[in-house]
Design a binder for these strands. Structure first.
Lengths: 236, 236
DNA sequence: TGTACATCAGTGAACGCGCGTTCACTGATGTAC
DNA sequence: TGTACATCAGTGAACGCGCGTTCACTGATGTAC
């Protein structure tokens, strides 16, 4: 987060009349509150308290509490995107296009669940202000590579098609199936009966879940046979 | 819900000093509040208001607000179990054991999603008081056949194993994979980006999702071949 | 069969809580002349 | 280069809200004798 020049003063020990950087400070405070306590914890009063400012000062920068929460939600989505991208960046490319496409796809799922586990408050917040169509093109819900979590998923699925592991006929709607699986595990592992499992177990389940999705996504037998992709194969 | 004999008086028009049936009335009120507004809407004040009674009267029957919510949560779980059982009861058995087992399994998933869609408030409430191990044997979270939603799922999976469609090696942990998929779709279809899809689309996606799970749950190729079940086949 | 009395379900008033939001204001900033 | 002034970020006090929860109580019930 950038700080503007001049008398920047965040937190309590403020001496100047002007805060100088209030909007980002409120956002950061709201983000930390979400991190610790989920969407319900994102209140105007506590955010302003943390920024060292009167409650109503927030109204200079946000229309109301909902607007602050929506901004925090965007930031949480971006954090999710970043975690997925981290997971993908950690992969070392092989010479096998198929293997790479599979690994990229798996990383979306495991990164997603990992984020939910590591940052349950942010995860809940990310889905507390519902987006209308999967975050397609929302410029603020985006990770460092300019993609939303949803776009990372659709991208990985597209590559599986390109590489011939999912038949083009099965592609439409596949994002919702994959997303459901991974999102469900995440919520069960945070708030549900799987919440007391240790991280290792959850990781094992999430790996197996993504395998299940991969396998199950190809309805037609065609996709299990080599060389049936719609696009020509460059290497292999 | 049963009513005891004597001066039963629910709702506002009460004339006797004693309510006579307050605990069930509070539970019913809480249930209706959950139905309309989810877990957060289940308040002691509104429940007692609806029962035609002073707020503190609730403390004769519930330790605190959390205790009331927990009871409503149990009732919501039971309602979920009933919806799944309805879905299963609507099936007409064929002569094919395998087909029947598959249908039974699918009904768990589609019933689950249907419940979430039809009763979003109850669905959210059902998972708001987290249970520790999948509701195993909890006597109040049970449908008319004495089974929790989780038990209906494990039962259906067991039958898929018996019938040879899932290899026994793949069985352990399968409930969490199936549950994740179906639970994820439910939440996406209620609060998430799929919430504005019409029922028909959601039903189509849920059908396909369950197929995906079915297909993906059998990691080993063995389970795709006929006659590899651990138990002997009675018919077929 | 009648009556005293313990029981305990429900009352009435009040508490403190933190919240979002509105009002009229104040005082530092930076720009126009 | 100095000064008047508009701008607008932040102040201070207050509002009403519904909530959970506690207190000392009251009055109908049903049981023991």
């Amino acid at each position: 987060m950038s700080t503007t020049g001049g008398a920047v003063n965040q937190d309590r020990g403020r001496t100047t009349y002007r805060h100088g950087d209030l909007r980002p400070s409120l956002l950061r405070a709201g983000y930390e509150l979400a991190q610790a306590g989920g969407p319900a914890a994102v209140t105007l009063r506590e955010s302003t308290r943390r920024a060292g400012v009167t409650p109503n000062a927030a109204y200079r920068h946000f229309a109301d509490r909902q607007a602050l929460l929506a901004s925090v939600c965007d930031a949480a989505q971006a954090a999710l995107a970043n975690t997925i991208e981290d997971e993908q960046a950690a992969l070392e490319p092989s010479r096998d296009r198929r293997a790479d496409a599979v690994a990229l796809f798996r990383a979306v799922g495991t990164g997603y669940v990992r984020f939910a586990r590591q940052e349950p408050g942010l995860f809940r917040t990310a889905f507390s202000v519902p987006d209308n169509l999967g975050g397609r093109g929302d410029p603020v819900r985006v990770g460092r590579n300019g993609k939303t979590p949803f776009q990372l998923l659709t991208g990985a699925l597209d590559q599986l098609v390109e590489v011939g592991l999912i038949s083009p006929a099965d592609r439409p709607g596949a994002e919702f199936l994959a997303w459901s699986a991974v999102h469900g595990l995440s919520t069960l592992a945070i708030d549900g009966p799987l919440r007391q499992l240790d991280d290792e177990h959850v990781r094992a389940i999430s790996t197996r879940l993504v395998e299940m999705v991969e396998l199950g996504l190809s309805r037609s037998d065609a996709s299990l046979q080599p060389g049936t992709a719609a696009t020509p194969e460059h290497e292999v």
